[in-house]
Design a protein around this nucleic acid. Sequence first.
DNA 1: TTGTAAGCGTTATCAC
DNA 2: GTGATAACGCTTACAA
Lengths: 325, 325
Amino acid sequence: MSTIGKLSGVSQVTVSRALSDPSKVSPDTMARIREAIELTGFVPNAVAGALASQKSKLISAIVPSITNIVHATMVKGFSQIMREKGYEILLSEAGLNAEDEEKLVAAHLSRRPDAIYLTGIHHTALTRKMLLGADIPVVEVWDLTDTPIDHCVGFSHAEAARAVAQFAVEGGYHMAATVSAGDERALRRRDAFTQEFDRLTGFVAPTVTWETTASLPGGREALRRLLDELSFDRGVIFCSSDILAHGVMIEAMQRGLDIPGQIAVIGFGDQDFAEFLEPALTTVRVDRPHLGRMAADALLNRIAGHAAERPMTDVGYRIMPRCTT
Amino acid sequence: MSTIGKLSGVSQVTVSRALSDPSKVSPDTMARIREAIELTGFVPNAVAGALASQKSKLISAIVPSITNIVHATMVKGFSQIMREKGYEILLSEAGLNAEDEEKLVAAHLSRRPDAIYLTGIHHTALTRKMLLGADIPVVEVWDLTDTPIDHCVGFSHAEAARAVAQFAVEGGYHMAATVSAGDERALRRRDAFTQEFDRLTGFVAPTVTWETTASLPGGREALRRLLDELSFDRGVIFCSSDILAHGVMIEAMQRGLDIPGQIAVIGFGDQDFAEFLEPALTTVRVDRPHLGRMAADALLNRIAGHAAERPMTDVGYRIMPRCTT
DNA sequence: TTGTAAGCGTTATCAC
DNA sequence: GTGATAACGCTTACAA
């Protein structure tokens, strides 16, 4: 900035002003400053700016996995809003382990983000302590709790799963099974579905649960086990994700089973492809881009100094009845 | 740090040393410093550190879309290596527009990243100029050129597509079609395939090309057009992505067409699901996590001061013959 | 409209 | 092994 100042015959501060608020500088000097910037290819140093102003215009975001479409879609909606407001996103993957998340939170906090986006509502005690100490807005997404660190945006996984059970029973199914990934939220949905289905029908749904992440072959293998080992032979299968449901469908079709005649399938997530499978997949929609945007709004509000009115935003869910049930 | 120093009876500088290199400090003071840190919940300010040391331990990454699994997977491999080495990733989406990318590059550069990861080899003149001016290592991924800004890691899209054409012809197909997304690299593959197929058989493959991003319904609609409007009725269809290929398969099956008997399908990308579709999808594999890791290695090498030996790393591709051909 | 001066919280360079 | 002191490149009063 000093160099630019010299070249345009003003002081360093004037250059700073010109860049942060052109209206504070005469059109004349502004022009000369622009020229000098053009000439030298000067790029302002945001690191120094952040240190001086105590505002980094940086948002920290921590997700379980960036290749998981569920989280990628939320972050996408989130970043779009944030970018419009001049914020950049520091993004890291924490996996499903709260201790790993803790390390990342510490690393991110050292860069003094203006706010932080966390996935889920389960964090270590130290994570909470650091966050509280950092005194910045925090949003927890994809789940709900009465006691968020600051604010949470999500929906009730248990309630959604119970609604699915009711939907299934109303659809005339007396038998059910579940196929689930091993993460805590998927398990919560699985258990809520099983309980509710049991309550309504007296039938206890068998389950195949994977430790690993959801995948197409996982879904195929799950149906094999359900059929061959757990003597499940007809009814509805509630899967913890659309991709698992898709695997179940492929395996069923390959075995010549009729969907939904013999095997009915319900997914979770309403990914892009769900509606266009053959038959179209019945699933549960959560508007993830919208959820991400709500998370951004919540943070922006808090950054602007407004206290959170409510500690949570429930974005709800919606069962999408299609052709697999 | 001054506070920690006071609490542990040393100066601020000693605290700095203790944190950056414990061996430079007596075990005794180290212990007291640790204690004080624990007590106060002190989190070092990396912004100030970056300003003083001129090293941010930040890597800038710019991708077309974070929800695009192709790029997400590469970035995942890339970040894994980078994180191990203590770097954090500043990630932004640029879409497919070089001007938007230019703005992002400027914004990222102002945060003084230690290196930058770019997608593709086409950038604006100003982007190149800024990058050169920033004097940091740059890696361009997912494509190859003899004149990278600094280093590129990718494969030849044209060569891969020609190999697919040869594979198809060797497989006995005399007729072909293409289904393609509208991005520059997909078009390059489409055209290379068409040319090579023409050269080998004299048959000019009709095409359905989408402006929009690849999707399942896009693939279904494409097959409809090929069949109903472009009087394509048998042969092999080369798709610019596995998801498009999947759409083609679903539409074909729904119409009762035999795969690969009447309609053969070749995808691109070898996504997780490709192998487990029914029938399993023939496609082209590019080892994306590996590509990302190579990109990280290249950058790390350059950061360590080594000049790039070669301007590019070709990670190659591999045709995966499965059951749709 | 512009300039001066202080300070942001570190690291780097010497000295002891 | 430890400490003073000077950067690092900005922003924010305050003054002119």
